[in-house]
């Protein structure tokens, strides 16, 4: 079981990302408001499709 480079990079990044989210949630801050970003992109499109 060789701990190669991509493994270390992926695991570290994933842990950081995960911990960032946990921290954002536990401290009740909007650090990574994915839903806001998604909403910003798609709600105009939705309005275009169905009007309002």
């Amino acid at each position: 079981m060789s701990k190669n480079k991509p493994y270390r990079i992926t695991l570290t990044t994933f842990w950081i990302f995960s911990m960032l989210n946990v921290a954002a949630f536990l401290s009740n801050r909007q650090w990574l408001p994915f839903s806001k970003w998604i909403d910003a992109i798609y709600s105009p499109l939705y309005k275009l499709m169905f009007g309002g």
């Binding site: 079981m1 992926t10 994933f14 995960s18 989210n21």
Partner: peptide
């Protein structure tokens, strides 16, 4: 990660799902 199994990712993935679902 080109790793033989995915066990190391179980814990962070679970934590991430839990955190995401709440925040």
């Amino acid at each position: 990660s080109k790793f033989p199994n995915y066990h190391p990712f179980l814990l962070p993935a679970g934590l991430l799902i839990w955190a995401l679902s709440n925040h």
